[in-house]
């Protein structure tokens, strides 16, 4: 799937989940709950390749996804 679409989707989710200390957790839960593994993988790669293009929260989100996957 086109990563620009995934990026758009993730950024829209981030915009809509209010900012608290646990926001990254809620976003990653959302992605685990609703995204296919392929979408998550593609997005993970996209962020880790271009970390500076993504917000701190989304960076934390993909780290969390990684941690969950490893757990």
């Amino acid at each position: 799937m086109d990563v620009t679409i995934l990026t758009r989707m993730a950024e829209q989710i981030e915009l809509n989940i209010p900012v608290h200390e646990d926001t990254y957790l809620r976003i990653s839960e959302h992605l685990v709950k609703f995204w296919t593994p392929q979408m998550r993988t593609d997005f993970y790669q996209q962020v880790t390749k271009n970390r500076k293009d993504f917000s701190a929260t989304l960076n934390k989100v993909v780290d969390e996804l990684r941690a969950k996957a490893n757990a």
Binding site: M1, D2, I5, K33, F34, W35, T36, P37, Q38, M39
Partner: peptide
């Protein structure tokens, strides 16, 4: 155990050939 594609994902993935 993981979610599948939503309709728009299906369309997007169709265009990308997956």
């Amino acid at each position: 155990p993981d979610p599948g594609m939503r309709i728009p994902n299906m369309f997007d993935n169709a265009i990308s050939g997956e």
